[in-house]
């Protein structure tokens, strides 16, 4: 199959990313001129006064749109890389970061925080509870999958399914006792949103993205070898058990931070690695950074769509990614089925 050059693909993605970022700055409930919007960002960074935007327009750019763009880029890149790693670890292109129970666990944590903890501390209690519960759920699933001969991928998957079912019941149970107001907050949180972007969240997401990208890239060759199967990877000198634990914990941290910052945003981690793999091949050395770029782009576009589609209100971005991703997932399944048939 014909492959695109990774360098060319990265350049194309970067150009699209810059264009989408510019569109995201300009467009919204209050449309702004392109050049002045761009200049106002330069003004804010360089301390110059080129932009002719009014103060309140500049505030819209720098306090609402730019933080949101930064959060979208970081979360999209984190989710896409985590998805890539999970698909490599499970040697299955249909795997998703949620497979290890992190999303379900995080959802339970967030629901408990929304319903049972005081609303006055919700701005930090919800993300913290989501992160802690997500990581806890992953470690529980991982612990259950340990057998005498190492980690059983089958048990890990089944434990993830069981935990998700349990989490669904727990969320239902807590929701039953929630007030109407809490119920709305809860359902919106589960649909994911980038509207709560603030400096803390951006810093957290960007730092996590940088650390994860470095950690994943250092393990890219080992991940490639892991695609041969665990035995073959072990015969190539890789400490497979340690690698699996590291990848699972890193992914849990990545998805935990993403969920904590923006609620549950599905399908980016599933769809993006698949698209990039089809375009440039399965080598994780190039797949990981390209997936990061593509994930950032896709979430930025999804967020733009979520802001523009029902103006002046906005759709939860998790809904938009699911609407875009679910049909794609079905197409992938049908293709896979054809391969099995043949």
């Amino acid at each position: 199959m014909l492959r695109l050059s990774p360098l060319l693909t990265a350049s194309a993605l970067l150009v699209l990313l810059l264009l989408s970022a510019l569109l995201s700055i300009m467009m919204g409930a209050m449309p702004l001129p392109a050049l002045d919007s761009l200049l106002s960002v330069i003004d804010a960074m360089a301390g110059s006064t080129f932009s002719r935007l009014l103060d309140y327009q500049q505030a819209v750019v720098m306090e609402l749109r730019v933080p949101r763009i930064l959060l979208a880029l970081a979360i999209g890149a984190i989710l896409a890389q985590c998805g890539t790693v999970m698909q490599g670890l499970f040697r299955n292109p249909l795997a998703d970061p949620g497979i290890i129970g992190v999303s379900s666990g995080a959802a339970v944590g967030a629901v408990i925080a929304i319903v049972w903890l005081p609303a006055s501390i919700a701005s930090w209690s919800v993300p913290v509870a989501a992160f802690v519960a997500g990581l806890g759920a992953t470690l529980l699933v991982y612990g259950l999958s340990q057998t005498r001969s190492g980690t059983s991928v089958l048990v890990l998957l089944l434990a993830g399914v069981a935990l998700s079912a349990f989490a669904g019941a727990a969320i239902g149970f807590v929701s039953y006792f929630a007030s109407d107001e809490n119920l709305r907050a809860l359902s919106l949180w589960q649909m994911g949103s980038l509207a709560g972007s603030n400096t803390h969240r951006i810093l957290l997401a960007v730092c996590t993205l940088i650390l994860l990208s470095i950690a994943f890239q250092r393990r890219a060759n080992a991940l490639n070898a892991l695609l041969l199967g665990e035995s073959d990877a072990r015969h190539l000198g890789i400490n497979v058990e340690r690698l699996k634990l590291e990848l699972i914990v890193l992914t849990a941290i990545g998805v935990g931070v993403a969920v904590a910052c923006s609620g549950i945003i599905g399908f980016i981690g599933l769809v993006v690695p698949h698209i990039v793999r089809m375009a440039t091949g399965p080598n994780h050395k190039t797949l990981l950074p390209l997936a990061a770029l593509c994930g950032a782009l896709l979430l930025l576009i999804a967020d733009l769509f979520s802001r523009l589609s029902v103006q002046p209100a906005e759709l939860p971005v998790g809904l938009v990614t699911a609407l875009m991703g679910a049909p794609f997932f079905l197409i992938m399944l049908i293709q896979q089925r054809r391969r099995w048939d043949s």
Partner: peptide
């Protein structure tokens, strides 16, 4: 691990590789 890999090679009956390398 790595030194052993340079001295002990195994060709399995079949590989699990299903990605299009």
């Amino acid at each position: 691990h790595q030194a052993l890999a340079r001295h002990l090679g195994v060709l399995a009956q079949a590989s699990q590789l299903s990605f299009p390398f």
